[in-house]
């Protein structure tokens, strides 16, 4: 499954990836980091990812962002003043913690806040699955270019072994 996702990214010329790790995303991050078709930029803080992706986008290169839903909550200011203001297209793949598949007691507030803030900001958020990422990420990217704004794609669980 991971190989198909990476092939889809490469075929769509998404070769720059940045992010802050979430446990659910580790298989994807490790595979991207070890694949010479991609440059993975591990950021110290999620807000930086929106800057890195915007710099790539404003250079005419495609970039994928990986983070947990709480990472977006850290980054709302940069998102509004940079990504919305400059209309930078890219895809943000979110580990949407705290939903139906997540029993961790420290995650539900992340889920509620992400839902409330993205809904309140009227952002495009598409709920995907590991099986559908290889088609959903390129489609979301095409939409982000057409709309002139980032597109959010969410996962509600980790990859099954």
């Amino acid at each position: 499954m991971i190989a198909e996702i990476l092939n889809a990214l490469d075929e769509y010329d998404i070769n720059i990836v940045t992010g802050v790790p979430d446990g659910w995303l580790v298989p994807l991050i490790k595979a991207i980091s070890e694949d010479t078709r991609f440059q993975y930029i591990p950021a110290a803080r999620e807000e930086e990812c929106f800057g890195i992706a915007s710099g790539s986008a404003m250079s005419g290169q495609k970039c994928l962002v990986l983070m947990q839903n709480s990472g977006f909550l850290n980054s709302v200011g940069a998102y509004t003043t940079l990504c919305q203001k400059y209309q930078t297209p890219f895809v943000v793949l979110i580990a949407h913690r705290g939903g139906i598949n997540d029993s961790n007691g420290y995650d539900p507030n992340k889920y509620r806040s992400f839902e409330a803030i993205t809904s309140g900001m009227n952002l495009f958020v598409h709920a995907s699955s590991w099986a559908n990422l290889q088609t959903d990420i390129p489609k979301a990217y095409a939409r982000s270019i057409g709309a002139g704004e980032p597109a959010f794609v969410t996962l509600s669980e980790g990859m099954k072994p």
Partner: peptide, 9 residues
């Protein structure tokens, strides 16, 4: 951060 994205691109 934006400059880092520009640099890798």
């Amino acid at each position: 951060s934006v400059a880092l994205g520009v640099a890798v691109a």
